[in-house]
Design a binder for these strands. Structure first.
Lengths: 346, 346
DNA sequence: CGGATTCTTTGAATCGTTTCATTGTTACGA
DNA sequence: TCGTAACAATGAAACGATTCAAAGAATCCG
C-alpha cells in the first residue's frame, strides 16, 4: 500500500545526490564502483522502479511507437504486429497496439490517444482518409509509416506487398504444371487486393498462347462464398470445367475444395489444381493440403519499424528534404498437394 | 517541425492563466463562457494536445491498464482483448496489450514495462509462476486480475471458464439426442483444460445407466492429430464404432470430420454425431457445420475490467481487508448440423 | 610539494500538467 | 450604499526524472 519509491528516496537511502542515482541508471561509467554498489543496493531494498512518465516528460517524447491495424484477429496483422514488436524491442522501444476494426472513429480515437502519449512515431494501416491528420502529426514531430498500403513516396514512407506479383505467381504456377483453362475466384473487384491479384493472374495468362482465364465472381471472401462458387462448378459438364483455379484468398479456396471433394467426382489436383492466397494456418491441414501465396509478414513488420526509425532520425536532424521510402515486398509461392504432381493436360 | 504547444502557450495566446486553461479542460463549469471560448479558440489555433506524461506524473498513475495474454493470434484471446478494450474505453481507460507468446521472459519484460508506465492495474493470463511478482506489484499499489485461470480468492481476483461444465454440456447433449456409445478425443490429460473437459463428460455419462465413454488419446490438439484419430476409427468394424464423439477442441473435431467424411462410408450426424469445443470461426463453415461449446469471451474481458476496477477502488480506500472475487463463467452449447436431428439409436 | 589533469559528485533548473489557496469580480439584499 | 455571498481567474507549488555547470577529490608528473 506504500507509495512507490522515487529517485529521491533512493538518493536519501544511499546518502548520495539525486543526480548520482540518475547517473547510475543512465551512465554507469561515470560513477565509482563504491557508490554504484550503494545505490544499486538502495534500489533493490526500496524496490525502486523508474517512473516513465517523469522520464518522458523531461525527454519530450516517449520510447513507444503507435501501431494501428485494421483487425488484430486477422492472422496477417497478428504476424505483422509480432514482428514489429520484436524489432522495436531490439532498439529499446515498445509498441502500443490499437485495433481499429475497420472503423474510422476507433482509428481516430487511437490517433488521439497516441498523440497524447507523444509516441515517437506511428505505424498505421488506415481505414479512412487520414492524410490530413497524418500531415498534422508530422508537423508536430510525429512521423508516420503506412502499413500494407502503397504510399506516394513524396509524402510518406510505406511498406506493402505486391498483390499483382502474387497473382502472377499463382497463375504462373498453375500454367507451369501444365494447366491451361484457368479460373479466378474473387469477391468484388472494387477491393484493391482482389483487383491486383486478378490483374497479375491475367498478366501471367497473357504470356501463354493457348491459356485462358475465366473470372468467377464470389459474393464475398468467405468459406461459404467459396462453396457457393464450387457448387455451381460441379454442375457443369466436364468439358466446361477449368483445370486450374486460383482463389483470391484461402477461405474461398477451402470452400471451393469442400464442394469439389464432397461428391467425389472431381479430384484435386488431378482434375482441378487449386491454389489460394495468404497461407493461413488451415491451408496446411485441409483435406487436400492447399497451395498458397504467402505474404512476408515478418519482413513487413520489421521493415516498418526500420523505416519509422529512419524518419524519426531524419526529424532530429533538421534537414528539410523529406526523404521517404516505399518498400514493396514480393510474396512467395508455397506448393502443397492441391497443385502437386506433374502436368496432366487433357 | 515546430515543438508541440504547451498549456502555457495556450494561456499566453488566450491571455489567461495556465490554471484557467487547465480548468477549461477538466472543469469546464468553473469557467465563464467568454473565457472558455477564447481558450478553446487558442487551443484550436495552436493545435494543442495534452501531454499525457505530464498529466500522469502529476496524477501519480496513468489511465492505462496492462493486459498480458498468452497468444494474441488465438481467437479466444483476441476476443477477450477486444471486450476488455471496449469496457476500459467506457470508463476512460486505455489498454496496453502485451503478447507473451507462452514465453516467461517476454511476460516478465511486459510486467517491467507496465510497472514503469505505472499502469492502474494488470490483467494477466500467466505463463510461469508470477505470484511473487504480482504480490510485489500489489504492494506498490498495482492490483492484478488473473484471466482464464482460477485463483485462490484469498489472494487474487480472477475470471475463468468452467471447463468441467463445458465437458458436461457437450456429453449431455450427445446423450440427449440419444447417443450412448460416446468417445472423447483429447490431447495429453496433463493439460488442465483437457482433463477438466473430460471429467465433465464423464460426469454426464455416469448419469445415464447404459451409456459408455471411451477415451481416445490424440497426439496433440491440431487438425492433423484429429485426422489421425479419425483414420484409426474408420478401420473399425461397425459394431465397435462410437455413435457420438466429443473432441477437446474444434481443430481436433474438424480433423476427425475430414477422415470420417472422406470415405463416404460414415455419415455425420446420422452414424456419428460430432461436437467440438471453442466455437472457432471455421466451425460454422465446415463441410458439416460443427456443433461446439462457446466460451463467453466477451463476458470474460468485460468482467476482468470490472474486477480490476473494484480492486483499484479498494486500493484507494485504505481498507486493509483484501476483498477478491473469482468469477467463473459457464460456457454455452451451440448446436449445428453435426449433432442435429432426432435420436437415431441402433 | 604544487599545479595540472582527470575523475566523481552535487543540486538547482527543467519538462507540462493539475491543484488549491488566494485574489479579484459581480450580483444581490438590506 | 455597504456587506456578503457566489462566482472567476490567478499563479506558485508539486509530481519525478534528467541534465549540466560547477565544486570537490583523487591522481599524476615534474
Amino acid at each position: 500500500m506504500s507509495r512507490s519509491a522515487s529517485i529521491k528516496d533512493v538518493a536519501n537511502h544511499a546518502r548520495v545526490a539525486v543526480g548520482t542515482v540518475s547517473n547510475v541508471l543512465n551512465y554507469p561509467d561515470r560513477v565509482s564502483q563504491r557508490t554504484k554498489d550503494r545505490v544499486l543496493q538502495a534500489i533493490d531494498e526500496l524496490g525502486f522502479v523508474r517512473n516513465d512518465a517523469a522520464r518522458q516528460l523531461r525527454a519530450g517524447h516517449s520510447r513507444t511507437i503507435g501501431l494501428i491495424v485494421l483487425d488484430v484477429g486477422n492472422p496477417f496483422f497478428t504476424s505483422v504486429v509480432r514482428a514489429a514488436e520484436d524489432a522495436a524491442a531490439l532498439q529499446g522501444s515498445a509498441v502500443l497496439l490499437g485495433d481499429s476494426g475497420h472503423d474510422a472513429s476507433r482509428e481516430s480515437n487511437y490517433i488521439d490517444l497516441f498523440q497524447e502519449q507523444r509516441v515517437q512515431g506511428l505505424l498505421i494501416s488506415p481505414v479512412g482518409d487520414v492524410t490530413e491528420r497524418l500531415d498534422q502529426l508530422r508537423e508536430r514531430g510525429v512521423p508516420t509509416v503506412l502499413v500494407d498500403r502503397l504510399a506516394d513516396e513524396s509524402r510518406y514512407s510505406s511498406v506493402s506487398v505486391d498483390d499483382d506479383a502474387g497473382g502472377y505467381l499463382a497463375a504462373r504456377h498453375l500454367l507451369d504444371i501444365g494447366r491451361r483453362r484457368l479460373a479466378f475466384v474473387g469477391g468484388p473487384t472494387s477491393i484493391r487486393q482482389v483487383a491486383d491479384r486478378l490483374q497479375g493472374a491475367q498478366r501471367a495468362v497473357a504470356e501463354v498462347p493457348d491459356a485462358s482465364l475465366e473470372v468467377l465472381d464470389s459474393a464475398g471472401q468467405t468459406v461459404l462464398a467459396g462453396r457457393g462458387v464450387g457448387d455451381q462448378l460441379v454442375r457443369r459438364s466436364a468439358g466446361e470445367l477449368p483445370d486450374g483455379m486460383f482463389c483470391a484468398n484461402d477461405l474461398l479456396a477451402l470452400g471451393v475444395m469442400q464442394s469439389l471433394t464432397m461428391l467425389h467426382t472431381l479430384r484435386i489436383p488431378e482434375d482441378i489444381a487449386l491454389i489460394g492466397y495468404d497461407d493461413i494456418d488451415f491451408a496446411v491441414s485441409a483435406v487436400v493440403p492447399l497451395s498458397s501465396i504467402r505474404q512476408p509478414t515478418e519482413a513487413l513488420g520489421r521493415t516498418a519499424i526500420e523505416l519509422l526509425t529512419e524518419e524519426v532520425d531524419a526529424m532530429g536532424s533538421a534537414s528539410d528534404r523529406p526523404h521517404h521510402r516505399a518498400v514493396i515486398f514480393t510474396p512467395e509461392l508455397v506448393v502443397r498437394q492441391s497443385t502437386a504432381g506433374a502436368a496432366t493436360p487433357e
